[in-house]
Design a protein around this nucleic acid. Structure first.
Lengths: 231, 231
DNA sequence: TCCGAACCTGAACTCAGTTCAATAACGCGA
DNA sequence: TCGCGTTATTGAACTGAGTTCAGGTTCGGA
């Protein structure tokens, strides 16, 4: 837990500069890992700087503040999820197929994406209140708006399933909150490298999500069996 | 949002001292409300002091730190939930009756208890890592241990339902996490005084919890109808 | 070779949270 | 009613993570 990085040896040339954007990606990587592992509060901003080998004030070249970094992580997390959501919806005609794919796909994520989800659910409360710094506020507002949009998109999708008679009638907004709420709850306790494999968590929770919706919970079993065979 | 309280007028007698414990309760009330409404971070500890009409340093007579206060709130929240849980279990012979009562009862809470749940779910991540100050650490450890115990108790209860053939066989621990995860997810977005009535939220989410468990979701309908008639 | 933009730094500042030494009020036994 | 330990409170000072600022250095391209 060194708080300060070692200074460049005097009389020594600095290492050659990398491609633009690389450093920022490094910072985000370290931040995601540290925020996800120890929590946002516990993580010292200066330690993140040290980990990517810059002085703590250099961080302000990339982010307006520590929270700005957090909000960018969150905005990216939702935005990536949304992109996958849209792609799946667009590619499937069959509603049931789309549903199962959506549910299964959202658990089919890398360790780093898990960490992002952990950061997301742990610090979600922060995106509620506006901030003063312009870019920070932009990132916050973006994360918030995209979250809302995503809920709306899910609601619309579920309403379509009801129209087609594939889903029992119910308030689509509350149903969305229930399905996504159950999904998000996973990241409060699941962490990569634990005793539980994500594939098992996925199998269990997808079936429970289907139960919430009122579908036969074994709707996704076939899909999982196929995935197992592939692996 | 005044940060400092007005000083006692000089030459004036202080107001008479209240019963011991009253001030601490006042602090907790204000803290719960403020943490739940604006978030723990956003809430300035000194503002809490001002709200109960003491200087900010006087808070340290009651709590070792701001986090200590938070942890006491969380510990109390779990402990109260647990007490209700145990009482309900003890009073019911019929397993289905107990289940429905547990689920319905956990939504039958006052506005202040809602705020406590909001604080709980929003800041839950903090109870993971140990703290240095003794009483603060004690409160943290207590909150953590009680949460674990509660999950265990739920798991045991669900396993009993499976033994009696009233619940489909499933991993009781994962099932517990799903049921409680869905419950907790509510407090991320529900707040008192909104457009949605808690009774409606309750009706919907209890039925979804039953769906998760694999029970007929209308198992609780009768109960709700009775509650409606009473009101 | 010059220039502007991107990148980075040390020193200093901020401010919520906290510590500390001292004081005031209370409650109770002598 | 006095004395004395406990409880409650305060102002002044301290702490440290986060931040600002006024500059430097490096780079790619004109």
């Amino acid at each position: 837990m060194a708080t300060n990085r070692k200074p460049t040896a005097p009389g020594r040339r600095r290492p050659p500069r990398q491609k633009p954007g690389v450093k920022k990606e490094q910072i985000l990587e370290v931040a995601i890992d540290s925020f996800g592992r120890y929590g946002y509060e516990e993580t010292k901003w200066a330690d993140v700087a040290a980990a990517v080998d810059i002085g703590s004030t250099a961080l302000y070249h990339y982010f307006e503040s520590k929270q700005h970094c957090l909000f960018e992580i969150m905005a990216k997390t939702v935005s990536d999820y949304r992109a996958r959501f849209d792609k799946i919806i667009a590619e499937r005609d069959d509603w049931n197929d789309a549903l199962v794919t959506l549910l299964v796909d959202s658990f089919d994520i890398s360790d780093q994406q898990v960490m992002r989800q952990r950061v997301m659910v742990a610090e979600f409360g922060r995106i509620a209140s506006p901030r003063a710094l312009p870019r920070e506020e932009a990132a916050r507002a973006s994360a918030r708006a995209q979250t809302r949009d995503l809920e709306f998109a899910w609601g619309t999708f579920l309403a379509r399933g009801m129209q087609q008679g594939l889903l029992p009638e119910n308030d689509p907004r509350l149903l969305t909150r229930a399905v996504l709420g159950l999904y998000n709850s996973v990241w409060h306790w699941y962490r990569p490298g634990g005793t539980l494999r994500l594939a098992d968590v996925s199998r269990f929770f997808v079936s429970r999500q289907l139960a919430i919706l009122g579908c036969p919970p074994d709707l996704a079993d076939e899909r999982f069996d196929k995935l197992e065979d592939a692996a």
